[in-house]
């Protein structure tokens, strides 16, 4: 619990931040060890990574539990609420910039590096001296680069599963908004139905994406190693998929919290933060659908 100090709420001391720092360290230390293990070497990296990851999950559980308890005890006043809102907004902005780096790589590869390797531009000698027979193209006939790294591959058709997934995510944005309006109107039954629907839509998105990945690896020979096309395709859709996973878990937790009656029509920042996050994930997908799949 925190204390009300004068006109302000200042949270009490907590062990969760230092626990968080420790488990994050354990996780990345394990991951680094694992990545550096020689082939065939047993190594302790994987074990440490697993321990760290479980630690992170427990840390989140514990930290959020104490925050939820403080919130239910009515400790959080309007000013704290505003700080939380700003925190979430700027966090989402940082996520936007993270995706911007990968979109930047995609645009650079398509607009500059692949055409230059194909002989475009002035004074670009790589084409002339190394790969004079490479004809620049994006996708199946050139996205693997002049060295055909990863072998020949086919691309995922935009108007199949990706279109379905677009419709799924767009509908989920609508259902989460309906749930929000229901929350404001105080209709708990309606909240649970539409928020539950949102969780199901998120999960089905993930199911179809997993399906698409399996098909890409098994039938199209499109892998993470398929040149810069495969790199940008899987890193962009993969990071997006991780965000959808996280968002779906968060939505499911919010569903439980709604079922337990944690939120009132005036006091439901947790709900809104997750809804904002979900819309952000949705917008990133629209960028992906446009620039990774269609164009």
């Amino acid at each position: 619990m925190g204390q009300q100090q004068g006109a302000y709420f200042v949270p009490s001391k907590s062990h969760w931040p230092i626990v968080a720092a420790v488990v994050m360290f354990v996780t990345v230390f394990g991951a680094a060890h694992w990545l550096n293990a020689q082939p065939g070497e047993a190594g302790f990296g994987k074990t440490v990574l697993t321990v760290g990851f479980v630690g992170i999950l427990l840390m989140f559980f514990g930290w959020f539990r104490s925050v939820i308890r403080e919130s239910l005890a009515g400790s959080y006043n309007h000013q704290v609420d505003t700080s939380f809102r700003m925190g979430m907004m700027w966090f989402i902005f940082s996520e936007v910039m993270f995706f911007a780096a990968f979109f930047g790589a995609l645009f650079y590869a398509r607009m500059f590096s692949v055409p230059w390797l194909g002989g475009d531009g002035h004074g670009v000698l790589t084409h002339q001296f190394l790969w004079s027979d490479y004809a620049a193209a994006w996708g199946a006939n050139g996205g693997g680069g002049p060295g055909k790294v990863g072998g020949d591959f086919q691309t995922v058709a935009a108007w199949g599963l990706p279109l379905l997934n677009t419709l799924i995510l767009l509908s989920s944005s609508i259902t989460v908004t309906i749930a929000h309006h229901a929350l404001k109107a105080g209709h708990r039954g309606k909240i649970l139905v539409f928020l539950g629907l949102t969780v199901l839509l998120g999960a089905s998105f993930l199911y179809f994406q997993a399906h698409e990945y399996i098909e890409a690896y098994k039938e199209l020979n499109l892998t993470l190693q398929s040149g810069v096309y495969g790199s940008t395709f899987f890193m962009l859709t993969g990071f997006h998929g991780m965000h959808v996973t996280l968002g779906t878990i968060m939505l499911a937790i919010i569903w439980l919290r709604c079922a337990k009656g944690h939120f009132t029509k005036d006091h439901h920042f947790g709900f809104e933060a997750v809804a904002w996050y979900w819309h952000f994930v949705d917008v990133v997908w629209l960028g992906l659908f446009m620039f990774v799949y269609i164009l």
Partner: peptide
């Protein structure tokens, strides 16, 4: 095995 900065795979160290 990604090729962001590997010219043979269509990437570019300058990226």
């Amino acid at each position: 095995g990604t090729s962001f900065f590997n010219a043979a795979g269509g990437g570019d160290p300058v990226l």
